[in-house]
Design a protein around this nucleic acid. Sequence first.
DNA 1: CGGTGAAGTTTTAAGCTTAAAATATCTGGG
DNA 2: CCCAGATATTTTAAGCTTAAAACTTCACCG
Lengths: 166, 166
Amino acid sequence: MDEGAVPLDYETAASGTHEPELRLWLRLLTCTLMIENEVRSRLREAFDVTLPRFDLMAQLDKAPDGLTMGELSRRLMVSNGNVTGIADRLVAEGLVAREPSPTDRRTAFVRLTPEGRKAFRAMARRHEAWIADFFEGLSADETRELMRLLGKAKQSVRGSMGRERR
Amino acid sequence: MDEGAVPLDYETAASGTHEPELRLWLRLLTCTLMIENEVRSRLREAFDVTLPRFDLMAQLDKAPDGLTMGELSRRLMVSNGNVTGIADRLVAEGLVAREPSPTDRRTAFVRLTPEGRKAFRAMARRHEAWIADFFEGLSADETRELMRLLGKAKQSVRGSMGRERR
DNA sequence: CGGTGAAGTTTTAAGCTTAAAATATCTGGG
DNA sequence: CCCAGATATTTTAAGCTTAAAACTTCACCG
């Protein structure tokens, strides 16, 4: 048995020499990747679905009237072309339907099919339990405080988007 | 001009109906994606380098004696095969060198070349400034507290990895 | 020694992702 | 009406990513 079995991640060896902001970023990235990798693996094992398809369906589930491809792209924070490919595959599986906008022929609406909604709801129930379990070690107060600080961080990042291009 | 121009992201429409842990996860993901996308774009624009290549070089920079492919894979939290491909491309660019282990012929060591180290150091300086700027809106206390809470979250996620497979 | 399972890496196939170019449509000013 | 620029989406080419299989080498037990 490996004695000091410390799991390796993005933060490894980033201890002393770096600025606190960089260490914070590496820890943020590590947390996200750990959860993302675990969720991806469980989704595949339990439902034979990929994470990007689950994410796209999650956005559609929150929008009963469907979303345009552009709205999907912005909410998922990925490129337009990316959404096209994932939606194509979900349409081929019958989980999602594409339909043209009646008022703008450039625009494509996308919505869950009844089967898609049913499949998603089943996955979402398990998914939500997984996420709750991941954060089980945090008290309600800590969860709230983390939420608040990440909200501030989000605002801060948002504010620094345009500037600092030197 | 769009009046209430609220930028869309993963959290959109996830407000009332979901558990606090799920909302926390979506916010964590949003923060990470915002930073990752911005860093990717700036690295491309300023240095014509991809984010995965930068990340791999960053790990090597912290390990002057080089790393095995397996160690790289664990630290970057990606699959083995993924590292093979990125390392191949960096070797082709002359930024990274592969060498066999003298003691174990299965093992491949990888290290920065002098040119690779020079190129990385220049990128890292700018990168660190970008990251500091992203978190400018947080006080030193808030940064510390966020760091602490993310550390707890990391431990919590780590602890829930094996269990909850029902 | 010889074989057996474990460990390190690469390969493969499929899918995801981006940036940029291409296509199609819309909008508004002449 | 027409067209120039803007908007919405898809296509393309290159690269990234995973999971699983294949290869190679190692460790060690008998």
